[in-house]
């Protein structure tokens, strides 16, 4: 689906990124590079701005009243906040999976087919079927739902719903997938399945995941960025961050002294 992504090149890069919600500043001068073809985890205590940063990448903050973004954020070198850039096009390239599984109250098939339909990705029904099946397959859900594609997406279990949402996101063939605490509403078994899935997906997609669980960050990510009070404290290889953090704040957080 996607062409080979050279590892290590910077897919997304933020320079001096500031976000305000009304009078409150949520992000301060963020400089962060997110490499292609890897999983980057954003960690930090509640309210540290990691979700805000994630939502800047596909401009979901546009939907929030009073949100203001300054500084530069580029995807493949072109400015995400360029006035010329169409947000619909951006979101087709940058998919998103939310904290709470939010399938549409439609059939499983229609859930996955929705993205390709609105973007006109399939020329005919057969092609659409193929995209849907492929996406469900990649999300590891096909075997479980193959016989009941016309049932409502909301009838699935929580973990299945979240994998359906992932299938829905990859059906559009995005380059980047943003995940906002995708496992926080799931039980440990469903979490394990989603984590396994994330690991498989990183060959084809650049993944940015916000998580509250440091174990999860350690398990699924290659790079980790630690946010605190709207500032980026430290970023580096996941192993390095967890074994040998440079900053005392990071050390304090990963050893559970606060958070």
């Amino acid at each position: 689906m996607n062409q080979f992504i050279p590892r290590g090149t910077s897919k997304i890069s933020a320079r001096g990124l500031n976000v305000h919600y009304g009078d409150k500043q949520a992000l301060h001068d963020i400089d962060l590079d997110i490499p292609a073809g890897e999983v980057t985890a954003l960690i930090g205590p509640s309210g540290c701005g990691k979700s805000t940063f994630l939502r800047c990448i596909n401009r979901m903050n546009d939907m929030v009243d009073g949100a203001k973004v300054t500084g530069s954020l580029t995807l493949d070198g072109s400015d995400v906040y360029d006035r010329q850039l169409d947000v619909v096009q951006l979101r087709a390239r940058v998919g998103m999976v939310f904290q709470k599984p939010n399938p549409f109250p439609k059939s499983i098939y229609d859930n996955v087919a929705y993205g390709p339909r609105i973007h006109g990705l399939a020329r005919d029904q057969a092609e659409l079927d193929e995209i849907v099946m492929n996406s469900l397959e990649k999300a590891g859900l096909l075997a479980e739902v193959e016989s009941r594609l016309s049932e409502s997406g909301t009838s699935l279990s929580g973990g299945q719903q979240q994998r359906l949402c992932i299938a829905r996101a990859i059906a559009v063939a995005p380059e980047v997938i943003l995940m906002d605490e995708p496992c926080s509403a799931l039980d440990p078994i469903a979490t394990a399945k989603v984590e396994e899935l994330i690991d498989e997906l990183r060959d084809n997609y650049t993944i940015v995941i916000v998580t509250h669980s440091m174990q999860q960050a350690a398990r699924v990510s290659q790079r980790t960025a630690f946010f605190h009070l709207g500032k980026l404290i430290e970023v580096g290889g996941t192993e390095e961050i967890f074994t040998n953090p440079r900053e005392p704040l990071t050390q304090g957080y990963i050893t559970g002294r606060f958070g």
């Binding site: 979101r91 087709a92 998919g95 998103m96 939310f98 549409f104 609105i118 996101a169």
Partner: peptide, 23 residues
């Protein structure tokens, strides 16, 4: 209508009109 539905559609690249009309 829960905001999560609007977000889900917006996250897939639906335009504001499509979000309203489809969902």
């Amino acid at each position: 209508v829960p905001p999560s539905i609007r977000q889900a559609a917006a996250g897939l690249g639906a335009s504001p009109l499509q979000i309203v009309a489809h969902h």
